[in-house]
Design a protein around this nucleic acid. Structure first.
Length: 430
RNA sequence: UCCUCAGUAGCUCAAUGGUAGAGCAAUCGGCUGUUAACCGAUAGGCUGUAGGUUCGAGCCCUACCUGGGGAGCCA
């Protein structure tokens, strides 16, 4: 008999089927056992009754504990009381893999324990919901860009030098020299975009900062579009459209998972464009009015971002930062040379920055000057300067942090649950 | 690097400086419709480590270790 997925049970009401999966929960009466079976597509209840199977089959329940893997054959029956609306009356049962003393129980656990058991924690209901939404977000991002004609051109992960001087990078042995794990695909994207006009890279990036907060991982994923001949407002517009598309797809396809996570889905449904566009200078004034100790020229701290985002029910853009606090490759605002054409998108509900981007400096001489100002070695960036030497064009783009986006949309309070195997400063295992 | 909180049974947590306990999990038993099922029983401990104070320390002090939360840092 061919195995079916649990999500297809409704098409087989009254028929005999074969289902395979893991025992998610079990409850037992004296002569009747209730098994909750999970196969990735869904969960269903299976009934092992002493009156419907032979003694030998019934005795197999002794080998069935939480997360044991089993294959069952039985009749599908509509049952209001069962999760999913259907149950299977077991006729045959085979235990594939026993699971004695499964460590994750049905009651609460602490963070440290769960992270140590991350390889098993991934099986639990909420974690499966988060990974499905993560998948949906990644798929929607790629679909959105693909549909617009973008080409996926990935950037390298081993890089020869610090792309941006200030940040701490992971250093690795690369045969007889040192290499560094990429903290952003952007510089290479700028090369790719000159070949294709519209590109994006999608991959892991690495930060060796000793950050230890709910918003930080040492290894996380970013999708980074880069577009030739785009201007500042068009770039913001693209970020907004992509964000709205992702939200639309998650709500369309993963509302069930959002409900499992007890996310306020109405809040997400009510998000519409245009998102407020606040200049850095305006933001500083707002923060000063609210009594924050911040002066023009300083970077926002986490409490500053929280206050700004709590003023609105949608993501917001903060744009045109002081050039001094932004990366060397950012183009200065032609209308005010003190400002850089950079933009951050901050998610509402206190989640903060999930997108950063802007327009890149395309002029060779200005870029050289900026490199010097940042004390970066010109020779390391010769290839990057070449892009300005040969057919330079105005261009820009942005990077969206996947885990922060997943955290916000799922309404979870730590990015470590938004990635299958989180890497944080004190955690490399599993 | 700094601030802060916490380490007690496999897990989640109790325990005025005076005999280390409960729930869940495990094991055994009971129950033919359960919904984190329920009921009864059994077993489970070098209280993170090392010192110190005290007649007596899980509890107070010091250092260290391991984590959590946050700051700094962070296109």
């Amino acid at each position: 008999m061919e195995r079916i997925w649990i999500e297809e049970l409704d098409k087989h009401d009254g028929q005999k089927v074969k289902v395979a999966g893991w025992v998610f929960n079990k409850r037992s009466g004296g002569k009747i056992k209730f098994l909750l079976l999970r196969d990735g597509s869904g969960v269903c209840q299976a009934i092992l009754s002493k009156f419907d199977v032979d003694e030998e089959t019934f005795e197999k329940h002794k080998d069935i504990s939480l997360e044991a893997s089993i294959v069952i054959e039985g009749i599908v029956k509509k049952e209001e009381k069962a999760a999913g609306g259907f149950e299977i009356l077991i006729e045959n049962l085979e235990v594939i893999g026993k699971s004695e003393n499964y460590p994750i129980g049905k009651k609460e656990h602490g963070v440290e324990f769960l992270l140590d058991k991350r390889h098993l924690w991934l099986r639990s209901t909420k974690q499966r919901a988060i990974m499905k939404i993560r998948h949906e977000i990644i798929k929607a991002s790629r679909d959105f860009l693909n549909n617009l004609g973008f080409i996926n051109v990935d950037s390298p992960i081993f890089t020869p030098s610090a792309c941006e001087g200030t940040t701490t990078l992971f250093e690795v042995d690369y045969f007889d020299e040192k290499a560094y794990l990429s903290q952003s695909g952007q510089l290479y994207n700028e090369a790719s975009v000159m070949a294709h006009g519209r590109v994006y890279c999608f991959g892991p990036v690495f930060r060796a900062e000793k950050s230890k907060t709910r918003r930080h991982l040492t290894e996380f994923w970013q999708i980074e579009p880069e577009i030739a001949f785009i201007d500042f407002d068009q770039n913001m517009q693209l970020i907004e459209e992509m964000t709205l598309y992702i939200l639309k797809k998650v709500i369309e396809n993963r509302e069930n998972e959002l409900n499992i996570l007890e996310r306020d889905v109405e809040f997400l449904k009510n998000i519409k464009g245009p998102f407020p566009r606040i200049s850095y200078t305006e933001a500083i004034e707002i923060l000063k009015e609210k009594g924050h100790e911040i002066e023009w020229g300083g970077d926002f701290g986490a409490p500053d971002e929280t206050v700004l985002t709590e003023m609105f029910k949608t993501p917001i853009f903060v744009h045109r930062f002081p050039a001094k606090i932004k990366a060397f490759y950012m183009k200065n605002d032609p209308e005010n040379e003190e400002l850089a054409l950079g933009v951050d998108m901050l998610a509402p509900e206190g989640y903060g920055e999930i997108v950063g981007g802007g327009i890149r400096e395309e002029n060779l001489e200005i870029l050289k000057k900026k490199l010097k100002e940042h004390n970066l070695p010109l020779e390391s960036f010769q290839w990057f300067l070449d892009l300005r030497e040969y057919g330079t064009v105005p261009h820009g783009g942005f990077g969206m942090g996947i885990e922060r986006t997943v955290s916000w949309i799922c309404g979870i309070n730590h990015v470590r649950e938004a990635i299958p195997f989180p890497r944080t400063i004190y955690r490399l295992i599993p």
